[in-house]
């Protein structure tokens, strides 16, 4: 864990060689945007919005996965960086529905992105998949960040019920042969929607309330408690509105769950509000 000195936007910064550029920059208070990154998952570095410019490197490099090296010269907001981020936002904004992606409007403003420049181009058209009672898959909102695949796979659940299938612009998240989730290996832990950054994977309760216009984040509280089932001690963050639990999340930084839950913790709270 040796200390290294790098240069960030012209300023020398002391950091540790086991940190990524993103971690170092965040410690320095720099706001590098991310979409496909999440602290509890292996960086997939697919969205490319976190790229920064490094002296001596032809292409830009993803801050989320690249480790710092001694002497690195990093520019976090150069013209090339800003252009790439703007274009990533435009490419995504023009092809998928980002309406439930938190803070995306601020990002669009920050980088001057105007996705409508590509109006008329191909989009990810897909009707929401509703094949179970617990959550909805609305892939028209999917930016293919790979997080759900990772959470279902080797980073957490190790169930591997979903994969990226197909190739290129036609690539989608799906089960084998597009089977309905209840016919697939899915165990309904919900860790996929726990990590989804765009609302493409969304609990049915939230989906229906949003459709009905009753989803009101200002009226919601989040309370941390412990799952009532087995003895592992998983932390639950319960989202409550009008004295009703709407969904259960889990803190990313707690070393018991690392943000992940099982089906009982994720959905097993309905017994306290049965009528």
């Amino acid at each position: 864990m040796s200390g290294v000195v790098i240069t960030v936007d012209g300023r020398p910064v002391e950091t540790s060689a086991d940190l990524t550029i993103l971690e170092t920059c965040r410690e320095e208070g720099l706001d590098i945007p991310t979409l496909c990154f999440l602290e509890n998952l292996t960086p997939a570095n697919t969205c490319r919005i976190c790229v920064v410019e490094i002296g001596g490197s032809r292409a830009l490099v993803p801050a989320c996965s690249r480790r710092v090296e001694s002497g690195m010269q990093i520019k976090t907001e150069s013209e090339r960086v800003r252009h790439t981020r703007m274009m990533v936002l435009e490419l995504l904004g023009s092809s998928v529905d980002l309406s439930l992606t938190p803070l995306v409007d601020q990002l669009m403003d920050r980088y001057g992105a105007a996705p409508d420049r590509f109006d008329g181009g191909a989009t990810v058209e897909e009707a929401p998949t509703i094949d179970n009672q617990l959550f909805v898959r609305d892939y028209a909102k999917c930016i293919l960040c790979y997080k759900c695949v990772q959470a279902c796979g080797v980073d957490a659940q190790n169930t591997f019920a979903i994969s990226v299938v197909g190739r290129g612009f036609e690539a989608r998240i799906a089960t084998e042969y597009q089977l309905a989730l209840p016919d697939s290996a899915c165990v309904f832990c919900g860790n996929c929607f726990g990590v989804c950054p765009t609302g493409a994977l969304i609990p049915t309760t939230e989906y229906e309330m949003r459709a009905a216009g009753t989803w009101d984040e200002d009226a919601q509280t989040v309370t941390r408690t412990i799952c009532p089932y087995c003895g592992v001690g998983c932390n639950l963050d319960l989202v409550v509105q009008d004295n009703r639990i709407l969904k259960a999340l889990s803190p990313l930084d707690h070393d018991v769950t690392s943000g992940h839950l099982c089906i009982k913790g994720r959905f097993g709270w309905q017994h306290v509000q049965s009528e």
Binding site: N45, T46, C47, R48, I49, T84, M87, V88, L91, L92, S94, S95, F118, G120, G121, A122, I143, L144, Y146, V164, G166, R167, G168, F169, E170, A171
Partner: peptide, 21 residues
């Protein structure tokens, strides 16, 4: 390039489509 993009990263997955368009 649109056909052969693996689809992993946004610049290539969507960029090759937008380039062709």
């Amino acid at each position: 390039f649109r056909d052969e993009s693996c689809g992993q990263c946004v610049p290539c997955r969507v960029g090759t489509v937008r380039q062709e368009e």
